[in-house]
């Protein structure tokens, strides 16, 4: 039962296997995640898969409180980490698990890894963060869009015209200078993503390149999940309907 999660039993989980696929896209702000999620979603839908996308901080339960807490930034690091975990659990149980039960592909724009990295950067121990998220479902694939800090910086400036307070980790008091803080914070996060890459089996995608190139790599990594034999070499499997049926019948007999 617990082999579907990272070690902790999730009470109320359906006993039968979940036929859907859980695909996670991780990467820093500016790594091109949002663009890739849109491309991947559209590709999978063209292939005939039903796709539900989800991200962090979108649950009905606590997102309002998170926004309010951020505005006043009055909450301690542990409190904030637990609030994010509650929000994640709500999405996992009320959105991700039902969608997977119904056979949909769930495309998660970030997952527990970002939450863990943020909590650890703010003082949580790695062991605590790991255990905290022990109830999370193991994804079928985690894609890690890896981009150099300079690239992230330029994309952030192009997108917002400035650097974001939170993405620069200004609440950590690393530096009073936004620019300096941005680099130091991204460095802290990437240090966490490094060990998580190994421990959580991320597929690294070089995100320093153009969106089309990133997407081609992503297709190559995702196609095998749907049983496309030619997926290893061809970015666009030619018989999508057949591969879709195969995947469904395999999932049903599993």
């Amino acid at each position: 039962m617990t082999d579907r999660t990272y070690g902790t039993r999730l009470p109320g989980m359906p006993a039968e296997p979940l036929p859907g696929k859980l695909i996670v896209i991780e990467g820093a702000d500016g790594s091109g995640r949002t663009t890739e999620v849109a491309l991947l979603k559209s590709w999978l839908e063209v292939e005939g898969h039903s796709v539900v996308d989800t991200g962090l901080r979108r649950s009905d339960l606590v997102s309002g409180e998170i926004d309010r807490a951020k505005k006043g930034h009055t909450l301690g690091a542990t409190t904030m980490a637990l609030l994010y975990a509650a929000d994640f659990a709500d999405q996992l149980e009320n959105k991700i698990v039902p969608a997977l039960s119904a056979g949909s592909t769930v495309l998660a724009d970030r997952y527990i890894y970002t939450l863990m990295a943020r909590a650890i950067a703010r003082g949580a121990s790695r062991a605590w963060a790991r255990e905290l998220y022990g109830f999370a479902l193991r994804p079928d694939r985690v894609l890690f869009l890896d981009a150099r800090p300079e690239i992230l910086l330029h994309r952030a400036i192009a997108k917002y015209g400035t650097l974001d307070y939170w993405e620069s980790g200004m609440d950590l008091s690393l530096s009073r200078d936004l620019f300096e803080s941005f680099f130091r914070y991204q460095d802290l996060l990437s240090r966490e993503f490094e060990w998580m890459q190994r421990d959580y089996d991320f597929a690294r995608v070089d995100a320093n390149r153009a969106p089309e190139q990133v997407h081609a790599d992503v297709q190559r990594l995702i196609a095998p999940l749907y049983g496309a034999a030619e997926g290893a070499n061809a970015p666009r499997p030619r018989r999508p309907r057949a591969s879709f049926r195969r995947a469904r019948s395999r999932a049903a007999s599993a």
Binding site: G12, L82, L83, A85, A86, A89
Partner: peptide
């Protein structure tokens, strides 16, 4: 009726962490 055992637990932990601080 949105609360599950896990969210129930995490929300109370959040609440307690804040009160503890």
């Amino acid at each position: 009726g949105l609360l599950t055992p896990t969210t129930f637990s995490l929300l109370h932990a959040t609440d307690f962490a804040d009160r503890f601080d």
